[in-house]
């Protein structure tokens, strides 16, 4: 029997150290190290909505990477479970498919709104920016589970943050898989790529329904309001 284990940073480091993919991973991180935090241009997941076919392979790949399986004491990628995925493909009728994951918003309203005081030595709130990857990270030991981050993400951005039903703490925040995003790796349609982009370019930082509305207008030349 296998057991699913959340893929924490600690587990990641351990796996990288032990795993065969260690070299490739570190090369990815090396590239990113040059990038200064706070830039509007960072390396992020770029979504080409024209190319997404809605197959949701990315959801399976993301959740498999970020939720490891304990196979008889050996930590391996899981099989994937869309419920645990940090990227989600939203389907609409008329047919458009909208993959949405943490946009790494340059102003990060989720971090802004986090009410936990900055840590005296690290200067970090419970929710903070990873200096290396630019991802939003939660310090679960300090997080009070208030849910402010999820609220502001849902009301003004992609609504990717979901709260753990047991303790209210945020989840589903993209980890970039430590620098080599699995979703990108397994998207054969070329809809996802990991590259340097302008964080505020069109169709980013929006709710999936609003993106869908714009895409429906673009492809089918009709106005259609969706939630």
């Amino acid at each position: 029997m296998t057991k699913l284990v959340a893929h924490t940073r600690r587990a990641f480091v351990r796996n990288v150290t032990l795993g065969a993919g260690a070299l490739a991973m570190f090369r990815g991180i090396g590239l990113l190290a040059a990038q200064a935090s706070g830039d509007t241009k960072v390396k992020a997941i770029f979504i080409d909505f024209d190319k997404c076919s809605g197959c949701r392979t990315c959801e399976m790949a993301c959740s498999a990477f970020n939720h490891r399986a304990d196979v008889g004491g050996k930590m391996m990628e899981g099989l994937g479970n869309p419920e645990l995925s940090n990227i989600r493909v939203w389907h609409y009728n008329p047919d458009v498919d909208v993959p949405v994951t943490c946009f790494l918003c340059s102003d990060a309203p989720c971090v802004e709104t986090c009410p936990v005081e900055k840590h005296p030595s690290t200067g970090r709130k419970a929710l903070y920016r990873d200096p290396l990857l630019h991802t939003v990270v939660c310090d679960y030991d300090r997080c009070i589970g208030c849910g402010s981050c999820a609220v502001v993400c849902a009301s003004s951005r992609g609504g990717v943050i979901e709260r753990n039903p047991e303790n209210g703490k945020p989840g589903r925040i993209c980890t970039l898989c430590g620098g080599d995003p699995s979703c990108v790796k397994y998207c054969t349609y070329g809809a996802l790529s990991f590259r340097e982009i302008e964080l505020d370019e069109p169709l980013r930082n929006m709710k999936p329904g609003d993106i869908a509305g714009k895409l429906i207008e673009k492809y089918y030349e009709i106005t259609h309001r969706v939630n």
Binding site: D50, S53, G54, Y219
Partner: peptide, 19 residues
């Protein structure tokens, strides 16, 4: 045709939608 669309985990996307 404007878009190709696929079923779950599908790599072929045989369906096409359009107007």
């Amino acid at each position: 045709w404007k878009r190709d669309f696929a079923c779950f985990t599908c790599q072929l996307a045989c369906k096409k939608s359009g107007n």
